[in-house]
Design a binder for these strands. Structure first.
Lengths: 352, 352
DNA sequence: GATTATTATGTAAACGGTTACATTATGGTG
DNA sequence: CACCATAATGTAACCGTTTACATAATAATC
């Protein structure tokens, strides 16, 4: 009864009405074709085969825009990252992607260059693309953005930060504790004049937390972090070099530098080499993140391992749960651990 | 005459029928709202204002899926890159993105890990997302993919390769000539035992071209590149190290290594340092790409500068032209240039 | 001021799927 | 075998825009 009527069965002139073509070819209705792809177990085995065969024959690729329209769901997740030039973030989105694709979700990436205004733009653009959920980095951002998401009922997760006290869900490390631990490690080596290079802490809460953690460790020793020993720079190897030079300018007897991430730290390491400062003999340099490069370089970089791949998987899972209406922990802690390599050691006196 | 009728003017329960809400609020038809955003000069100034005001008030964000459905155009471009872990590609997509956004196009990125099968999957997924155009890397891929694109009339550009003789449009450097020039540079220093580390040349035409270029330079000198001096590895610093170790195992009197990209080269540089081989005294190491890191490291890496940011802009422009139906050159050449730094020099004899 | 060209807006039919609901086939029971 | 529960499929409305075409407003011309 459902066979081709033979008179209008050309597979559409150039690609229009496409699910209909498959339906006609297989001799079923469009609803059945749709079900075949979306809920195969609700379709009789034999019909399934016919539809698959027809789809294959016609080279059918469903139109996700139409799907999104029809179903009110796009199966797309958006993620906003501050930069794509730090492999810590590419690892993260790689892991996100991988986990999401298992549930047939697709990832849309927006990059905002650490600029809150771009971040807002990119979020709008993600929403325009119809994402079902959003992943953000950190928690510090304009209230407007949170309201935008909540107003549209778009679930989201703040990644890269662990903030149980925040009203918003989060998955990430406790940078404050990690920074404290790292600083303690340096203090135990006898370092007293410690410098700090990081991103701008006013727009970046991770940087602010690292700063707080350092102060946490310094205070019991009656030490502090004066302004001239706290440098904020944009992110690049070169800025790590600049950071170190600036620190040394004001504090020539500096004995240790904490860098908010390994990019700065590696830059500082290069600069130390060029300045003929022996590491760790005269200067200890430590970082955050544990990039692949940090293990390769020599001396190896002492750093705080930040398992962003694991974080990506956890974030994805949390978001997927939320999308399925299942409850999830409000804040998930990602463990970091101190990795000690050759770039740090006891203070051994200056040769400068 | 078009004012609210007052009885069903609630701004939609939770976000449905949205362009209608703006239309109602502004007292115009949905067509006018649509025109307001898409061809503002076809709308009377005063109406424009009213619509913008209404849109702002209702926090209107158009639904791009619906737009795509209605207009048959998504204003999305897809790009397929082999990896996101090499900053040469992040620079590239950054530049692409930037140029495309000027024309209000959005970029969708797919990563295929140098695996042709993934590449096919990702291309399907891009098409499913309704991209208006596609950017690929290199030209060597299954015919099916080309047919898929052509069958659907989706314009595309092969980036990272300059192939005027290919039937497909391309924008990129001439790796063969560049490799030849780089090799000549080493030969002129007296190097005769040269090793080569690169990606797998069977699936990667850029690697194949670099290989060909090296051979081009060696042949006139009656030299060749025996198998044991040609290593193919996946892409990572560690694989650069492995590559160098393997080369030295079979050819202990190696005097120079050409790496297909700077990641390998930097890995090799690290390995040389760990093996106490002086660079460039005992061994010259050169690469391709000119990463930020290659200038920072010491010794600085001699390499072939590959302006991927420029390439991104050119690729974007070519694709945009094509989308507007304007003719473009079939193949565009991106200039590379040799950057000489400290990692290469005359052969000065072994201490091994 | 009637007529015509031009500009601004409205009307309604697509676009390609999904899905609630209706209908038909299938299989199990007494 | 009539009856009913269940499984499989079909019908058609709907999602939020765009756009061809129709119509209304405005400007230009005589």
């Amino acid at each position: 009864m459902h066979e081709n009527d033979g008179q209008n069965s050309r597979p559409s002139p150039n690609g229009s009405g496409r699910i209909r073509d498959v339906a006609r070819e297989a001799g079923v209705s469009t609803a059945t074709v749709s079900r075949t792809f979306n809920r195969p177990d609700s379709v009789k085995h034999q019909t399934l085969e016919r539809v698959f065969e027809a789809a294959r024959k016609l080279n059918y690729i469903p139109d996700s825009a139409a799907r999104a329209m029809g179903s009110k769901v796009s199966r797309r997740i958006g993620v906003l990252i501050p930069t794509i030039d730090d492999s810590i973030f590419t690892r993260f989105i790689g892991a996100l992607q991988q986990r999401l694709s298992k549930d047939r979700y697709t990832l849309l990436v927006g990059v905002y260059d650490f600029d809150p205004e771009y971040e807002a733009n990119e979020l709008h653009s993600l929403i325009e693309s119809g994402v079902d959920g959003v992943v953000l980095c950190g928690a510090r951002r304009s209230n407007d953005l949170y309201e935008l998401l909540q107003g549209r009922n778009i679930p989201f997760v703040n990644a890269s930060i662990y903030s149980p006290e925040s009203p918003y869900p989060s998955v990430g490390p406790d940078f404050r504790s990690a920074a404290k631990e790292l600083t303690r490690y340096l203090l135990d080596f006898g370092h007293r004049k410690i410098g700090f290079i990081d991103l701008a802490s006013d727009t970046n809460d991770r940087a602010a937390l690292r700063l707080a953690g350092i102060v946490d460790a310094l205070e019991p020793e009656c030490l502090s972090l004066p302004n001239e020993r706290h440098i904020e720079r944009p992110l690049s190897f070169e800025d790590g070099r600049i950071g170190l030079r600036t620190l040394l300018e004001y504090t020539p007897d500096l004995t240790a530098v904490i860098c908010g991430n390994d990019v700065f730290a590696i830059g500082a390491l290069f600069e130390a080499k060029d300045l003929d400062i022996s590491v760790p003999g005269e200067l200890s340099i430590v970082g955050f993140d544990n990039l692949e490069l940090s293990a390769q370089i020599s001396p190896g970089l002492t750093t705080v391992n930040f398992p962003t791949a694991e974080m990506g998987a956890r974030v994805a899972e949390k978001l997927l749960m939320t999308l399925m209406g299942k409850p999830t922990p409000h804040a998930i802690h990602i463990e970091t651990n101190l990795i000690i390599r050759g770039s740090s050691g006891p203070y051994r006196g200056l040769s400068r």
